[in-house]
Simulated assay, not measured.
Amino acid sequence: MEALAVIIPIAIVAGTIFVIMKVARQAIEQYGFGMIRNWTFALVLLSLLSGFAGWVASFDSQAQASFLIFVAVWLGLGGWAAYINVQRSTPKFGVMFTVLQYVAAIGVIAPIILFFTHRRSMNVMRNMG
């Protein structure tokens, strides 16, 4: 049972990477644009960052207006990226491509955040002694 707790997440991550690579290759070959080296990926990154900022602002009862602004920016940038991807390709492929860009962006942002928080905590621990 414990082996499944390790194997299943590894299989999910490997499958996700395989799907992203396949769709990215199809986008380059069929439609002429890439997954990461694309300015819609920058829109997706900004959308995720504003969504994260809105999530953080939701914990403060005084910042309800900020929360709504961040959510509007999050949805607006995500919708704009999806619209551009749909314009460049078919509607089905464009929406799927945008969702996979979000998955890839989370795969890029999460390790960066973990790296910097781990590094910062190690600096704090070193200064405590």
Rank of each mutant, 00 (worst) to 15 (best):
A72H: 03
F116T: 14
W80A: 12
V103D: 04
Y83S: 11
A27M: 09
I113G: 01
Q62L: 10
S66H: 03
Q26F: 07
Y83E: 08
P9C: 07
Q30R: 13
K22F: 08
A82G: 05
R25C: 01
R25K: 15
T90V: 04
N38I: 03
I20Q: 06
F52C: 05
G51Q: 07
V95K: 05
L68I: 08
M96A: 13
Y31T: 01
R126K: 13
I113N: 03
R25N: 13
E2F: 12
G54K: 01
L100G: 00
L68E: 14
S58N: 08
N85G: 01
H118V: 11
A82H: 01
F59D: 10
Q64L: 12
S61N: 09
P91T: 07
N123W: 09
W74M: 13
S89F: 02
F70E: 06
S50Y: 10
S66T: 14
L43E: 05
G129Y: 14
M128V: 13
L4D: 08
A11K: 00
G78I: 00
W55A: 14
I7H: 02
K92M: 13
F59S: 09
V95F: 13
A14S: 11
T90A: 07
A72V: 12
V103Y: 03
M21E: 14
L75Y: 06
M21W: 12
S58Y: 00
L114P: 00
H118N: 13
L48Q: 11
I69M: 10
F97K: 00
A57C: 06
H118L: 15
V13W: 07
T16S: 15
T117G: 00
F18G: 01
E29R: 10
A57D: 08
V56F: 08
F116P: 05
S89N: 06
N38C: 06
A105S: 09
L100S: 00
T16C: 11
V108R: 01
I36L: 12
M96E: 07
G129E: 12
V95R: 05
L4T: 02
A104H: 02
W55Y: 15
I36R: 06
A81W: 02
Y83T: 09
R119G: 10
G76A: 10
L75T: 05
V13T: 09
N127F: 11
G107R: 07
I20M: 12
R126D: 10
